[in-house]
Nucleic acid binder design. Structure first.
Length: 907
RNA sequence: GGGCGGUUAGCUCAGUCGGUUAGAGCGUCUGAUUUACAUUCAGAAGGUCCAUGGUUCGAAUCCAUGACCGCCCACCA
């Protein structure tokens, strides 16, 4: 974009982000600055985006997550690394299917009515229409992803990687199929992994039921349960073998109320005698504990639910009822028959579907699983050895705990949108008998020891086979299920580079440098990527995992669209600008803590943008057209004030770089805010006004501004580019300009210290003015004829400057006298009003002021003296601390003397 | 049941290796305006750093115990 330099007078007073953001983003795209490719001359820096769901709409969590990534990428790009940010989206199996099904419902359609193929066409269409919303929104945020490389988890290449991984794991004996209790969502009608179930504490009820013992003359046993409807599937009852209360039940049989089924009475160590009555009803098909007990004791499993959560034929008179309705009916029935003895409130946690919040049902069904333990071992080792580091470190433990107690991963989903399981079955080989055997194989783990799981007539292939390998039949059907969404996401860090093909990008950019994500997907995603990366690439997928907090609203609720409390980042960008949003969200994110977003935070960001804008406006207004930034003036020609701000600048460069290297984003941004606003603008800009015609000062203004813009660029890319383009810069864009290096030669602690003293003096004068209650309107009398004038060196220079600025005048306080008309005074700006004539002092007030100050100083001196008199302190504290304190004490003594002298002269 | 995080100004929060008189933003109050910026500037008020005990010359910071708030994990029938 060729930008005509506006005459300064036409730079608007208020920063307007709209056009600026659009133009510069397009400029960056046009010039290809986001692109990165393998370049052996440079060090790589790579990040893969946590792929947002295609159903996603940018929320504050995304804004935080992606701003942090963009900061890292932009920073490292400027430091000269080959920085790549790989973007992409996730097909989000269940979530997307739900969305499309919902839109079908509005048309009065169901996916079943439509059929699998037609339905998938609809999903693809939906994806084409809405699936890139979030990508567009990320661009508005300013994300510098290499968009040409954008991937989608259902792209052909990534799908191929999925099949490859499935087959390899299968051949290694790490994938098997089996009939187990899994988490079933009756609404989505699919299996869920353990991680996809959210447990919530709810107050339910504990029902005490009376079961009759067979042939015992009416003896009964009382059993406590939270889910009475599952009694219909009971096939046994049990107690702890050492529970003396129930020894008389050994070998007996109980009778199931309502249905009259005969129930074995078993003993098992796993049954807790403390819970309820100590007797457990055993429902193998609907409870994981019971399922295990049943496997040990050879009990039959009776399934009483249909996939949609209604009761099936096994439920006798309750067939067809919904599970919760059935619960109510059964309770009433049991009450009527006096089988329900007691109902107590009971706090327990109930699993909910993470997609639709329906209560999840433990359900016995045939599913595919990944055997995780062998995969977890290297993933544990890699983190223990520090190959991958978590920031903040406390997540290491969370990760390791989960990995150590890892359970097998249920990967099949009974939905249509996703990667179809690459398994085919031969209709001829799978006779009714074979199928019965498979069905009957509940609980038997048929694989292990490196051998592939096998079923007659089953083929696991990378491509659809033409014919059955055993009998040659072409009567083949593919497994109808699809894979868990995360089965493609866990390959993301290498599948996006074209794995299994070995190529330059993979070699150059893998392992990636940093993964930025929230803690809610450590188990879903981070841990599994570690396993996949180590298994298939032989290397950890990232050097660092940066875990940030969750964005909440002011009341602490997790922001979500459904709660209606979400602050829409796009609205914030429209209203305040992307830079303001980015600044705000970073400034409130301290390491790993959850953050609370609110309107006022974005206002602070907008105000900061505007401050930057106006400071730049001032500098540009005063810059000599011939000034060259690349030709620094001789050091001697710089005023002490110039040298002060240059020193401060270099401290800021060092501080910001260090903070970024340590991933302390909020620290970096606050350093910049303080430096820019409270040092550069409040002091330097004001003090530069009298010297504004001086070229060295102009150079300093422009130089400090330019370098601060660079430091700010990763955080606030748009406004920094806009201003930088108006400066006499070199190069095409700030985003590819080199990151400033802190030049130690410029850091001058002496000048900083001395100017701090002067600043202190000015502050003291401000205080005097306040104490005297001088209305500056009346009292522009300005002088700094203090003792300081006699002092040597910088202090004197500085005081002189102020005197010059102020144009000492002899106006008197209290009279409404017009301000002097000298232009110099007008130019002085705000500083002028701070400086006040000494001499015309209310002696009483001044004495009070000095006495108060003296008291303060004396108090501090007492504290210091007692410390310095302490032998332990002198011998045990580090020397530099002691020296610092001694110096401080001296300074205080001097100050005290001055104050006392002032007091004497007053009297 | 296990684990993690938090408790600092009226509000929201920083506070690194234990070391000056504990900071910021917002809010409140007082004042400023020929100004790059009212999306601005100056000033003031406002603190038992959750409690108790310990370590230390020195603790908001380290240790122990407890309280309260929040989160995560677990086969809490």
């Amino acid at each position: 974009m060729e930008k005509q330099k506006l005459p300064v007078s036409e730079i608007p007073k208020v920063y307007d982000p709209k056009q600026v953001e659009k133009n510069w983003y397009q400029h960056w795209l046009d010039r290809g600055y986001f692109r990165a490719s393998a370049d052996p001359r440079k060090k790589p820096y790579s990040i893969v985006i946590p792929p947002p769901n295609i159903t996603g709409i940018l929320h504050m969590g995304h804004a935080l997550n992606n701003t942090l990534q963009d900061i890292l990428v932009r920073y490292h790009r400027m430091t000269g690394r080959q920085a790549l940010w790989m973007p992409g989206t996730d097909h989000a199996g269940i979530a997307t299917q739900n969305v499309v099904e919902k839109s079908l419902r509005e048309e009065g359609l169901t996916r079943h009515a439509l059929g699998r193929e037609k339905f998938l066409e609809r999903v693809w269409k939906w994806r084409q229409k809405y699936g890139n919303t979030i990508i567009r929104q990320l661009r508005r945020l300013g994300c510098s992803c290499d968009w040409d490389r954008t991937r989608f988890t259902m792209d052909e290449g990534l799908s191929q990687a999925v099949r490859e991984v499935f087959v390899r794991l299968y051949e290694k004996g790490l994938i098997y199929r089996g009939k187990y209790i899994i988490n079933w969502c009756p609404r989505c009608q699919t299996a869920l992994s353990d991680e996809e179930v959210q447990h919530k504490e709810v107050t339910g009820h504990l029902y005490y039921l009376k079961y009759e013992i067979e042939d015992s003359g009416g003896q009964t046993v009382t059993i406590a349960t939270t889910r009475p409807e599952t009694m219909l599937g009971d096939t046994a009852i049990g107690c702890h073998p050492d529970d003396e209360r129930y020894h008389h039940l050994k070998g007996k049989t109980a009778l199931l109320p309502l249905l009259g089924r005969r129930l074995r009475i078993i003993q098992d160590e796993e049954i807790d005698p403390q819970f309820g009555t100590g007797v457990l009803k055993i429902t193998p098909a609907h409870d994981p504990v019971d399922f295990n007990l049943a496997a040990r004791h050879g009990l039959e499993a009776v399934n009483i639910f249909r996939p949609d959560g209604t009761l099936n034929e096994n439920a006798g008179p309750f067939v067809g009822l919904d599970r919760f309705e059935a619960r109510r009916k059964i309770i009433t029935e049991l009450e009527d028959r006096r089988i329900l003895l007691e109902t107590k409130e009971h706090l327990h946690s109930v699993g909910h579907c993470y997609r639709c919040q329906t209560i999840v049902e433990p359900y016995l069904s045939l599913q595919w699983f990944v055997r995780m333990e062998p995969l977890a071992k290297p993933a544990i080792a890699a983190v223990k050895k520090g190959k991958t580091v978590f920031t903040p470190g406390r997540w290491t433990k969370v990760y390791l705990d989960w990995m150590t107690h890892i359970k097998d991963w249920c990967i099949s989903r009974q939905i249509w949108w996703g990667h179809r399981i690459p398994v085919w079955y031969c209709g001829r080989c799978r006779t009714a008998e074979v199928l019965r055997e498979i069905e009957a194989g509940a609980g038997k783990r048929t694989t292990g020891g490196g051998k592939a799981y096998a079923e007659p007539g089953m083929m696991v292939c990378r491509q659809a086979p033409e014919a059955c390998r055993t009998c040659g039949s072409t009567e083949l059907t593919q497994d109808p299920d699809v894979l868990d969404t995360w089965f493609s996401s866990w390959l993301w860090p290498f599948s996006i580079f074209g794995w299994p093909e070995k190529n330059k990008d993979l070699r150059y950019f893998y392992p990636t440098s940093c993964l930025v994500t929230g803690y809610e997907i450590i188990f879903f995603w981070v841990a599994r990527m570690m396993m996949a990366g180590l298994e298939f690439m032989g290397k950890e997928p990232f050097k660092e995992v940066y875990i940030h907090g969750i964005v909440r609203d002011e009341t602490g609720a997790k922001m979500s669209k459904s709660l209606g409390n979400a602050v829409d980042p796009i609205r914030v960008i429209d209203q305040y600008g992307a830079d303001a949003l980015r600044y705000a969200i970073v400034s409130i994110t301290s390491e790993g803590q959850d953050v609370y977003a609110s309107e006022e935070k974005f206002e602070v960001g907008r105000n900061f943008s505007n401050k930057i804008w106006n400071a730049a406006r001032f500098v540009l207004m005063n810059l000599d057209p011939g000034l060259s930034l690349s030709k620094p003036p001789r050091r001697a020609s710089l005023s002490p004030i110039d040298r002060w701000i240059l020193s401060r600048l270099n401290q800021a460069i060092a501080g910001v770089s260090l903070s970024l290297d340590r991933s302390r984003f909020n620290e970096a941004v606050s350093t910049l805010y303080d430096f820019f606003w409270h040092e550069f603008c409040d002091w330097y800009l004001e003090l530069s006004k009298p010297a504004i015609k001086s070229l060295p000062t102009q150079w300093t203004l422009a130089h400090v501004l330019e370098n601060t813009l660079k430091l700010l660029h990763p955080f606030m890319p748009f406004i920094t580019e806009e201003i930088w383009q108006r400066l006499p810069h070199r190069g095409d864009s700030i985003m590819i300009s080199p990151w400033p290096a802190a030049d130690k030669a410029w850091i001058d602690r002496k000048i900083e210290g001395e100017l701090q003293l002067v600043v202190g003096e000015i502050q003291a004068i401000r205080n005097v003015r306040a104490a005297w209650q001088i209305n500056p309107k009346d009292s522009v009398t300005v002088a700094i004829k203090t003792a300081r004038e006699k002092e040597q060196g910088i202090l004197k220079d500085y005081s002189t400057t102020i005197v010059q600025m102020a144009k000492v005048s002899s106006l008197q306080i209290g009279k409404n006298i017009k301000r002097p008309k000298e232009s110099a005074v007008a130019n002085v700006g705000r500083v002028e009003t701070y400086v006040v004539l000494s001499g015309l002092v209310d002696i009483q007030v001044e004495r009070q002021r000095i006495e108060a100050a003296l008291a303060d100083v004396e108090k501090m001196i007492r504290g210091l003296r007692s410390r310095l008199a302490n032998r332990d302190f002198l011998t045990k504290a580090p020397r530099e601390i002691v020296e610092k304190e001694q110096k401080k004490a001296e300074e205080l003594e001097n100050r005290k003397k001055r104050l006392e002298e002032n007091l004497r002269t007053l009297c």
